[in-house]
Structure formats: C-alpha cells, structure tokens
Design a protein around this nucleic acid. Structure first.
Lengths: 326, 326
DNA sequence: TCCTCCAGATGAAACATTTCATAAACCGGG
DNA sequence: CCCGGTTTATGAAATGTTTCATCTGGAGGA
C-alpha cells in the first residue's frame, strides 16, 4: 500500500513489463496475450484506474462530450438529456451538461467553457450556430444550422402530415394549426408545412396562426373568440406545434366552454409525459427521443468524419392521449 | 497565426514574461500590476484558454463536479439539475451528470467512473451510501447517509406539520396521509411524522397509509373505497408525500366521483410545475430547489472541510394549486 | 558608494499518460 | 547453426500546467 493512487509506472513495475505496454493494454492496441494478462492482473491487484487528465493532456482524447441544452426542466429536454447520458455512458463517455436557458449570451459562454475544457465533441440543441468553426466535432439536434453541421432531427414535416391525416381520419372537417414563436424558427415551421400540405391536397379548409417571438398567448384567445361567433367553435380539429401549447390551448378552450375531444380534437407534438409516468398530456405526435439521442451520439463519435450525413431524419408516430376521439 | 491552440508558453513569449508569471496571473496569485496587464493583453490577443487537462494533471484540481441523480425526467430532479448546473457555472465549475435510474448497480458504476475521472467532488441524490470512503468530498441531497456525510435537505418534518396545519386551517376535520414506497425510506417518512404529530397535538383524527416498495397503487384505491362506505368520502383532507402521488390520487378520486377541492382537499409535496411554466400540479409544500442546489454546491466547494455541518435543513413553504379551498 | 534585504520574477522539475523510433525476440529457410 | 526479415516490446520524448528553489533589481541604511 503506497498511500497514493497507483500510476501506470506502478502497474508496469508490478507486472514486470514496460510502461508503453501497459498503455497499449488500456487502449486496446495489439499486445501479446501473455503480456496482456500480466498487465491486467497487476492492474487489478493495485486497483489501477487510468488518469483521464494525463490521457487528455497527451492525446487530446478526453472521453467526454459536452451537451448544450436550453434547459432540462422541459420534459422533452429532460428525456433527451437522460437518453444522451445513458447512450454516452454505454460508449464509455461522460456527459458534461451545460444549460443555457436559450440566452445567446449563455450559449456563447458555454462555447468558451467547452473549448477550455477540451471535450471530444459537442451535442447541442441551440439557437445560434455556435461559432465552433469546425474546431470540434459538433452534432446538432433538431436544428439545421448549416451545410457542414450534421443534424439529427425528428421528421417534423412528416409529423405535420401525420397530424393532419389523423384529424381528417377522425372526422374533422375544419382545421387549425397553432404555433408559438419561442421555438426554433426553421424546424417547428416544418411541422406546419407538412400539416398545410396535407390539408391542401385533401381539400380541407384550415387556418394557420403563427405567434411571433414575444407575442402574447392572448392572440390565441382572440382567435378562438373570433371562431366562436356562431355560438359554437367552427373549428373541429387543432394541431399545435408542441404539447406544451396544446396543454395551454386546452385550458383556454375549457374556459370558453368548448369540450375536448367532443367539440374539438387536439393533437400536439413531442410526446412528452407527466412526470416519468406513462400519461401523455394530449394526443400527440411522438418524437423518438431515445433514438434521437443515440443517433446523435453515434454520429458524434464516428471516427471517419469525412462522409457524415448532413441530416438524419427519424420517423415519428401518433399516440392518442385523450384529446382526440382515438 | 500558428494554426494550433496557444499555450502558456506562447502567452509568456508574447507578453515577454516568464512562464510562471503567466500561470500566477491565471490563478489569481500576487503578481506585479504591470506584469499582470502585459499577460492579460497577450492572452486576449492570442485567444488563450487554460488547458484544464494539464491543470488537472498537475494540481489535482479539475474544476468539475460529478452530480449523481436517479433521473432527470422527474420535474423535481430536473429543476435540481438545472439549478446545480447554473450554481456550479457561477462558481467556475462544470457539471458532470450521471443518471442512475435508482439502480444500485448503476450507482456503483457511477462511483467507478467518478473516481476514474478525477472530479473535485460529488453531489448526489442516491439510495446507497456510495462507498467513497471520504476519498472525495461528497454532499448528499435530501438523504442523510451517515454522520460524516454532509446532507442538505428540505425541512421535511416541518413541511409535514405545515401541511396538516393548512388543512386544519382550511376546515378539514378528518385527515389522511398517503405515501409511496418508492421514495427514500428515511426522508419521506419525516413528512409523515410531522403531519402525524400535528394531527395528534391538535386532536384531529387521521389515517396513515404507507405503501411498501413494489406494492401497487391499487391499495390506495381500496383505501378510498373503504372510506366511501357511507356513500360519500368520510375524509376531507389528504396529504400526499409527493406531488406525483397527489396527481394520481386526484385521478382515482375523480373516477370515484369525489370532487376536489369541494369534497376533499389535497396537499402534495415538492412544488413541481407543469413543464417549465408556472402552473402547479396541486396545492403543495414547495421545496426550495434553487436554494438546495446552491447550498449543496457551496458546501461541496468549501475549502475548510473540517467543520462542515452534517445537515443543512432548508425551510419549505405552502403554495395553493387548485386542490385546496385556498 | 556600497552592502543588505526583500519582494517579486524566473524557469526547471514534476505530473501520468501516449507515441514513436529503436531494440529485442522470434521464426523459417538455407 | 546462422542469418534476414518480421513481429512485438521498450523507454525516452513530448504534452501544458503548477510549484518551488533560485535569481534579480531596487530601495534603504551606513
């Protein structure tokens, strides 16, 4: 017992081999079997663990990955964070989590800390393109930031189509698409685009109401009141760009005395759940959160960074959650 | 432009000073003002950032902290994670997040990774005592693990008392305490203890139903049915050990045709909110999540580890959330 | 003018690893 | 048994810090 944590040199001495040999064993490089065994046994005897900081210093590989999220309070981000963490750990990496609260300043600050910390790569769901200039492998989740930044996202367009198809299938004849401005500009729009395309091709009348950044939810309320002119809502199917919005719309409608799903059916987007339980907030288009996380990690850790797809689009699915007639 | 990231040596050269002087500047050690300025300007010119791995290797200080949580899906844990992250970043540390899903195996695995990663300390909300043997500074959140492990927790006992007092104040005459077995054994019990003490001292009749690990929620349903013998519920105030439970109890009661808060008032515990919005799930005893996180971080980063309090107990508060008459 | 001190700057050594040029070991074939 | 050729182990150099023993310059006293 030396009282101090054992080093590779100690292991080499204990095993009676050279320092470099021990290094190779712990990096999976080819080593003669007899040597490998000697080293492994010596390491176990001493309780040796690789010092990640020395490794990081010398080789640049640090085995940890920075994850930048707007927050972890929202269940979609929370699920993402959780799956990213487990996916990374399965691949022997650690997750360095930065939360930005969506402030560009905070995001910039994170980039500084990320660079300072010398991580192997960054997985981010951010608003600004994060000026990493290709210094570091970067994978974006749910936001296409540029041609040379790989992005993994749910099939937002297809999800929009699916929502429209479901509502029509469930008997709706007059639809609406509601969207908040706080979400990213490009991706959430695709949900609306898919929705509108389907409505048009099926010849179903619809309204689309997009809130700009900073605008109040009051506009939604006004929208509903307009459509209640005849005493009852003249819309019977609503697609909301997020479950959060769908949840709030439910509140507004119940205040107005409109019943869900009897009078109007609502479909949200995300597939988030109450607590970590099963219950959905509403009928919804479910994002494949786990698959998103795993794909992002795989993409990031791919050795050959020359031919990486610019966009991986994962399929979504429909799940009834009480705000539709099925 | 050298094409490679600048090192301290580069900064020293650029500033025309010695290597050690640059080091001192970046560690806040005393340096002559003229030197300090020269170094800071040179560093800015080169865009220099301290290499944390070299620093960690040499000095043992790594400026990152491991945070071990059962999960990040539950809004209470999510809020905790978020506040821990910001509190750490404010103190120039990074958060290495490990999620365990409450499996002892996963927790053990985390300890290994933590040790291997050479972090400055660990903040954990875990089930098992995490055999760190005082190797590393450790702060436990919400669970008292032992005499030499500092713990920061909400005032669970006081919260239980507060819940009982509120219900009584709001006119309840027959109370119940419900608790799930999945939460930690000791801490959640304190909530019940406080509740029962107050009921007893105020001479209010009450039932207490504690679910053991693995037992089904069906027992709660059975409990309610028993108490509906007279056609209507003979209990008019319920205290649930968590908001999650309160939420599910609401569902059961609405199935039974019991109205909340007209027939029975419910108070939960945690103070978690829908998404990251304001809306509470129920009337509740609010945990000071942010304060918990900040205290844990401060405790962990305290230099002088000799006289650290074994338990810091933070005050809770009551917040009406629709399941009480105020 | 010279000597003594002292605050403060200096740079070599150490930290634990990876990598690479070199050396040793091994294996067949003549 | 020896000799090329190939495979595999070796250990010194290098990575970017911090630390500490040493050195320097300047002020103050005689």
């Amino acid at each position: 017992m030396k009282g101090t944590t054992p080093t590779m040199k100690d292991v080499a001495q204990e095993a009676g081999v050279a320092l470099g040999t021990v290094s190779k064993v712990f990096n999976g490089l080819p080593v003669g079997d007899s040597y490998r065994i000697k080293v492994e046994e010596a390491a176990k005897r001493l309780g040796y663990q690789v010092n990640q900081y020395a490794r990081g210093l010398r080789s640049g590989k640090t085995y940890n990955v920075a994850v930048i999220l707007p927050g972890v309070n929202h269940p979609f981000f929370a699920a993402l964070a959780q799956h990213l963490c487990t996916a990374l750990m399965q691949r022997e990496h650690r997750m360095l989590l930065y939360v930005t609260a969506s402030h560009p300043d905070a995001e910039r600050e994170c980039v500084g800390m990320v660079r300072q910390n010398k991580v192997d790569g960054v997985i981010g769901l951010t608003y600004n393109p994060l000026t990493l200039d290709g210094e570091l492998p970067f994978v974006s989740i749910d936001r296409c930031l540029g041609p040379d930044i790989p992005c993994v996202a749910a099939d937002n367009y297809g999800g929009g189509r699916l929502a429209a198809e479901k509502l029509i299938e469930l008997g709706c004849t007059r639809l609406a698409f509601l969207r908040t401005g706080s979400a990213s500009p490009s991706e959430t729009d695709k949900r609306g685009d898919g929705f509108e395309m389907t409505c048009r091709s099926r010849n179903i009348p619809y309204d689309a109401l997009r809130l700009n950044d900073g605008e109040d939810y009051a506009r939604f309320r006004a929208f509903f009141q307009e459509h209640m002119a005849a005493g009852r809502l003249d819309i019977d199917g609503i697609f909301c760009s997020t479950d959060l919005l769908a949840w709030q719309v439910q509140g507004m409608l119940s205040e107005l005395g409109v019943r869900v799903p009897e009078d109007v059916q609502i479909i949200g987007f995300d597939g988030v759940r109450h607590f970590d339980q099963d219950k959905l907030y509403c009928s919804t288009i479910v994002q494949p959160t786990r698959k998103l996380a795993e794909t992002a990690v795989d993409l990031l850790l791919t050795k050959d960074r020359s031919n990486i797809p610019a966009l991986v689009c994962l399929p979504v699915s429909y799940a009834p959650g009480g705000t539709t007639r099925e």
